[in-house]
Design a binder for these strands. Structure first.
Lengths: 153, 153
DNA sequence: TTGCTCCTCACGTCACGTGAGGTGGC
DNA sequence: TTGCTCCTCACGTCACGTGAGGTGGC
């Protein structure tokens, strides 16, 4: 999704700053084909990133953040043929990714609740409230079971 | 948070099934001191897990799920002295972890919105809606900026 | 005895990170 | 010339995963 009116170029350091990924990772992703080869400066041989490159990198970073392997990311990106004709395929991939994120978000919520229950448990212990302590102990155990099930798929 | 009335024992395979972590990871965590040494069966030498062990493992799994390093997890667990006297310290650690989870959840939401904008972008491209395409392009770029900032701290 | 699970130890692997040693533009 | 950034290539590292080779209880 690059701007159709203006295109700037950026050094690897600038690209790293703009995307939040370290320069070493940008080189690594390019070397294994997760991102397409970026342009090089004449005579210097330095990488020159444009807006489309940055956009691609941000998208890869989003995929990586959900624990996708680099092999899968490469297939994913190769599939996205670049161009309006592939819109249908892109939407399909994006929808899958959306679902992955939804599952992850659900697990995050569970973990947050688990930690909250643990906080309340220790507060009950501190207050010497034996009944509440036992109640929260049971609750924590039940949540643990949920956490285990959520990790499977 | 082990049950005070009954304690069962479990093999490493059962412990793996109950916590969702592979047996190899349970051995690894024990070997580097992230979880305390578990009991061994007389003469067999096989690991025997009890409810307190399982609880500890689930807690470690929760910490690991937020990207905490094993070194930090070890310090964290060592600090939790086990016992009601450490309730205050436990609550402090748990509160910190809660905040880590909240930040992570915020990033998840951002990524979900980013993917959603991308989906709508390609739908606009597919529909040939140039104005909406450009609008969503700008929106995606703005979100990318947010994503970058969220990854920093 | 035959499976089955468990054990340790060592090496493999995945996704980078980190120098070493060298080049290019203000 | 002096910094500064960039380059490649190779090796290091972190968190496990995966055998190899062997033991123990029904």
């Amino acid at each position: 999704v690059s701007s159709s009116t203006t295109t700037h170029h950026y050094s690897i350091k600038q690209a790293a700053a703009l995307t939040g990924l370290p320069a070493s990772t940008l080189r690594y992703y390019e070397s294994i084909g997760v991102i397409s080869p970026v342009g090089r400066g004449d005579s210097s041989g330095h990488r020159v990133y444009n807006d489309a490159d940055l956009d691609q990198i941000l998208w890869v970073a989003c995929l990586a953040s959900t624990g996708m392997s680099v092999a899968d990311m490469r297939d994913y990106m190769a599939n996205g043929e670049r161009g309006a004709d592939a819109a249908g395929a892109q939407i399909e991939l994006l929808t899958t990714q959306k679902q992955r994120l939804a599952v992850e978000a659900e697990q995050m919520k569970l973990r947050q609740r688990y930690v909250q229950v643990k906080i309340e448990y220790w507060q009950a212990v501190e207050a010497g409230d034996a009944a509440r302590t036992e109640l929260l102990e049971r609750e924590a155990r039940a949540m643990a079971d949920e956490l285990k099930r959520a990790r499977k798929p």
